[in-house]
Amino acid sequence: MPDSAAVSTFIPADLRDHFPLDDLLLGLLETSLQGVALYTPVRAASGEIVDFTIDYLNPTAQRMLQQPAQPAGTYLEHFPHTIETGVFAFHCEAFESGEPARMDVNYQGDGLDNYFRLSARRVGRGLLVSFSDTAHHTRTAVELSLRESQARERAALAEAQGQRATLHETFMQAPAMICIFAGPEHVFELANPLYQTLVGNRPLLGRSVREAMPELEGQSIFGRLDEVYRTGETFRANEMLVQARPRQRKPGRA
């Protein structure tokens, strides 16, 4: 790492008196259109980096990240979504390698929703990160297409969840006995109150029909369920005898 004397040689001699190094650094941080962050690694007893302290955010970084210059709390406490997106790993690798690193990421989490370009480099005992976002830039066609696709996916998911909730409520209030099985073992996913009354006060959800209702063994119902699941063909019966009796507890000893 170059020392301050070596860095000062980058500035022409006739300008050094006009632009003192400390003032120049402060001016660059305060006026930079790029976000600049200074982090210090937090290590576990094993030596692995498990978090960072946030030592400084320049004004642009404060605006982008919606944080003060020195936020209370650690990096992961503020930005846990960086684990899922790989940004935290990027910072760790940049620090450990000591080499400049770059990353582009579409970040949607922790109150942020933007495209970021990151550049990171170890400086002394800390990590210097420079980054920009596209909040004030015209988005490319690819970015707009991706955002529209993500918006459609979120809308479809919300609609499906709403429909599922409505259907569940309908089943639970229906004046008929209804249950829903899942998988080849016919595991109970839903049993409405009337169905539960039919079979008695026994646990159903999450259990297979064979486990929950062993008294059906030897009757035709298990075979019917297996056939419907295997073929996908609907089975209807106007009258079908099924003997389902609630299990009776054996009297305990005094």
Rank of each mutant, 00 (worst) to 15 (best):
V7K: 09
E239Y: 10
L167C: 08
N58F: 03
L127H: 04
V42N: 14
A182Y: 13
P59Q: 04
V87R: 07
P12I: 03
R247G: 10
E215P: 09
E30T: 02
G232K: 01
E233T: 08
L76N: 02
D113G: 00
V36I: 12
I54G: 08
T231F: 06
G35I: 03
I54D: 06
S4K: 14
D22G: 04
P214N: 01
F235S: 11
D55G: 06
S208M: 06
F116P: 03
V123A: 09
S119M: 09
F10C: 10
E211R: 08
V228W: 07
G47V: 04
Q161F: 10
A94D: 05
T40G: 08
L21Q: 07
S97R: 00
L26W: 01
Q248L: 15
L15Y: 15
Y107D: 01
R236W: 13
F222E: 06
N114L: 09
C92E: 06
F188Y: 11
G35M: 03
T170R: 10
L194P: 03
I11V: 11
D17T: 11
E148T: 10
L21Y: 02
Q150M: 15
E93T: 09
F116N: 05
G73T: 05
S145L: 14
G27N: 01
A6N: 08
G206F: 00
H136V: 10
Q173N: 14
D14A: 10
D133Q: 00
M213A: 08
P68H: 05
G124H: 04
S8Q: 15
R154Y: 14
D14S: 10
R122V: 05
F188W: 07
D55A: 02
G183M: 06
V228G: 02
A135G: 12
A89K: 14
A237G: 10
M1A: 13
T140I: 03
A174N: 02
F88L: 02
D110Q: 00
H168C: 13
V242K: 14
N201Q: 13
T140M: 03
V242M: 14
T31C: 00
F52P: 07
R152H: 15
N58H: 07
D17A: 13
A237C: 10
L127C: 03
L28M: 02
R122E: 04
L21S: 00
G252R: 15
V42R: 13
A6R: 12
G183C: 06
A254H: 12
A244F: 12
R152C: 11
G109S: 03
R43E: 01
Q150C: 10
A37G: 13
A151T: 13
Q163L: 12
H91K: 08
Q62W: 07
P59E: 01
T85R: 09
L76H: 04
Y75I: 01
S32M: 00
F116R: 00
L127E: 05
Q161K: 12
T53V: 05
L25N: 00
T231P: 05
T53I: 01
R207L: 09
T197L: 12
P80S: 01
Q62C: 04
G206Q: 03
F222Y: 15
H137A: 14
A61F: 10
E30F: 01
F79W: 11
E227G: 09
R202S: 11
P203Q: 01
F52K: 04
A101F: 11
L190V: 05
Y107H: 09
